[in-house]
């Protein structure tokens, strides 16, 4: 019998059973499947049982007594999805986010997510709200989505089952690729880019990897149901992934004061989330105090905002921005002279 068919038969049998079903009975019911040697049959049933548990089938084995015999039994109430009584608004939020994530094509646990959306929609009938939210995630180049999506799915499985992965990684900081063995702890999305955080066996420490830079990926397939590693209790993804261009995991933060004028003054909170803002009395100017662990990143970002963004201090940050601006100006200086002389 086909394995899918056999497992569904088991589901039907167990959902209907009023008494525990013993292993001997199961063998009688499925003579062709659980026939053969005792060992082989038991191993086959163990695999089927694991699959049932994975599906959320609450199967338990009860030891019999005078009243009851030994055998397998399922807690029916724990099997069926009850109505979660989600309000229209709650359903709308879950649906909007879930379908946008699915439609982006690039979200870890896509299959899981699709099933989850179906299930929460089961009781909602036709009244499901149609969201208009679209997200482009995880891919830096058009056409890369499929590859990133496949990697995320593999990494999600590896994170969930705590199996190490082997990958070749193309860091822009070094030519070529490096081979890494990584214990995947989790996946984080920042500024539209997916990052894997995990313990890197090559570097002997926690490292982050952009998923679109992973070239080849293989998860450890040995002993699939036994985890290869433990995630430390105090581990938090958030501590290891930089949110903003002015953040760096390894550097000590310094406080930088920025002076924002013109159109930037009112946009300060959006441009520099987390900064302490202070409007200057004469108006039209906002001072932003920001903890910065990556001065070069900050300087580049400020430079791109234009002349309405000025670094007030400290001097190290001021001079870094000046150096960069001067470098750009010098490289393009002849154009200005041409223009002036013309």
């Amino acid at each position: 019998m086909d394995r899918t068919e056999r497992i569904l038969d088991l589901v039907a049998l167990l959902l209907d059973a009023r008494e525990p079903i013993s292993w001997a009975e199961l063998r009688e019911h499925f003579p062709a499947d659980y026939g053969g040697s005792d060992d082989a049959a038991e191993r086959k049933f163990e695999r089927d049982k694991a699959e049932l548990v994975e599906l959320g089938f609450p199967l338990t084995y009860v030891q019999g007594d005078d009243e009851r015999r030994d055998g397998y039994i399922v807690d029916r109430d724990a099997y069926y999805l009850p109505e979660a009584d989600l309000t229209k608004e709650e359903l709308a939020v879950l649906y909007a986010a879930g379908s946008a994530a699915l439609a982006s094509g690039v979200f870890p646990g896509r299959d899981d997510l699709a099933h989850a959306l179906r299930k929460i929609g089961f009781f909602a009938g036709e009244s499901l709200p149609t969201p208009r939210v679209r997200m482009e995630l995880g891919a830096t180049q058009a056409g890369q989505e499929k590859e990133v999506s496949a990697r995320l799915e593999q990494l999600w499985d590896a994170c969930a089952s705590r199996k190490w992965v082997e990958m070749s990684y193309a860091s822009p900081k070094h030519p070529g690729t490096t081979q890494r063995k990584v214990d995947p702890y989790g996946l984080a999305l920042r500024r539209g880019v997916w990052t894997l955080v995990g313990y890197c066996h090559l570097r002997g420490g926690l490292r982050t990897f952009h998923v679109h830079r992973v070239r080849e990926l293989k998860a450890n397939t040995a002993r699939p149901r036994t985890p290869d590693f433990q995630v430390p209790e105090d581990f938090s993804l958030d501590n290891h992934v930089a949110y903003f261009p002015w953040q760096h995991r390894f550097h000590e933060p310094v406080e930088v004061v920025l002076r924002l004028s013109g159109a930037l003054a009112s946009r300060a909170s959006g441009l520099f989330p987390g900064a302490v803002l202070e409007p200057v009395a004469e108006g039209g100017i906002t001072l932003a105090r920001l903890r910065v662990s990556f001065l070069d990143g900050l300087a580049r970002f400020c430079l791109s905002l234009g002349a309405d963004c000025v670094v007030e201090g400290p001097e190290s940050a001021r001079s870094r921005l000046r150096e960069m601006a001067a470098r750009v100006a010098n490289r393009h200086a002849d154009a200005l002279e041409d223009k002036v002389s013309a």
Partner: peptide, 28 residues
């Protein structure tokens, strides 16, 4: 054959759904 309601959400399904909802956290 008593399959009148789907199974409950698995841990993975619920986790993926909750994580995707984070995408709109401030919105919701």
């Amino acid at each position: 054959q008593r399959l009148f309601a789907p199974p409950r959400l698995t841990a993975g399904e619920a986790a993926a759904l909750a994580a995707s909802a984070e995408l709109l956290r401030p919105a919701s």
